[in-house]
């Protein structure tokens, strides 16, 4: 078996004096598509921040197989200042990070790539729009373009389906499946019913992490993982609807 591109070992992490993650272990392989589920406050976002290097764990090890691994990141839309004066094209280009010299003019190849990504995600002709003029769903697509323009080996998405209209949601998962052939994907969602049909494996985060090496989840399984998740069902997308449950006993 190939080596994990990202290895989390015995991670203890949190904020100030409050520990959120306890003894978390996770291996991410090159073609993984991991759905991260769990209750609010269970540590999903904390786990992402540790992976992204935004939060240093109290203890434990985060190891990348290749220290130069490029990570694409799609944050929650809520964390963004929507009145910031920046246009769509600039947001997408910001995904290039430090890869290019800033004082050089933009090469046309990069611009072409940005426009191609916009077209792919239904944003044609919007390059000059201010970020604040977009709907929540359009903003999500812009952030997806920004996350993948640098051809990451690992794509990390925090609740990408919030605000996304149902039509695009299907497209979104289609695009993600295609991207998955080239990169590992870690996707956080509260919407377990929808994601379970698209992801390959599932990690349930509720203080600690339970890894489930398949995308079929059952009530019993969630119970044994101590993972109370609210299940929301949606119309047109194939999904499993699971009973709501409470297992704090």
């Amino acid at each position: 078996m190939s080596q994990a591109i990202l290895k989390l070992e015995n991670i203890e992490a949190g904020y100030e004096r409050q520990r959120v993650l306890h003894n978390v272990n996770l291996d991410v392989f090159a073609n993984d598509f991991i759905g991260v589920i769990g209750p609010n406050g269970g540590g999903k976002t904390t786990l992402l921040k540790v992976m992204l290097g935004l939060l240093s764990p109290f203890s434990g090890k985060v190891t990348f197989l290749d220290p130069k691994t490029v990570i694409g990141y799609l944050p929650q839309v809520n964390s963004i200042d929507k009145q910031f004066p920046i246009n769509v094209l600039d947001v997408i280009l910001s995904g290039l990070g430090k890869r290019r010299k800033w004082w050089h003019p933009l090469p046309t190849s990069i611009l072409k790539k940005a426009y191609a990504l916009m077209e792919l995600s239904g944003l044609s002709g919007m390059h000059n729009k201010a970020i604040g003029e977009l709907s929540g769903g359009q903003m999500q697509r812009v952030f997806l373009c920004r996350a993948i323009i640098n051809d990451p080996q690992l794509l990390i998405l925090d609740e990408p389906n919030t605000f996304v209209d149902k039509n695009f949601e299907e497209d979104l998962y289609q695009i993600l499946s295609e991207l998955n052939e080239r990169m590992a994907i870690v996707l956080v969602s509260h919407d377990i019913g929808t994601i379970s049909s698209f992801v390959k494996t599932i990690a349930c985060v509720n203080g600690n992490l339970h890894y489930h090496p398949a995308n079929k989840i059952t009530n019993e399984m969630l119970k044994s993982y101590n993972c109370p998740v609210e299940i929301i069902s949606h119309g047109t997308i194939p999904h499993r609807v699971l009973k709501n449950h409470n297992n704090h006993d």
Partner: peptide
Amino acid sequence: VIVFYRPVLYTAFDSEFAQVSGL
């Protein structure tokens, strides 16, 4: 402004993302 416009803009807009992207 001419040399550092973009990194400054990106950091001001979304500093977490800028950090992840290596700025």
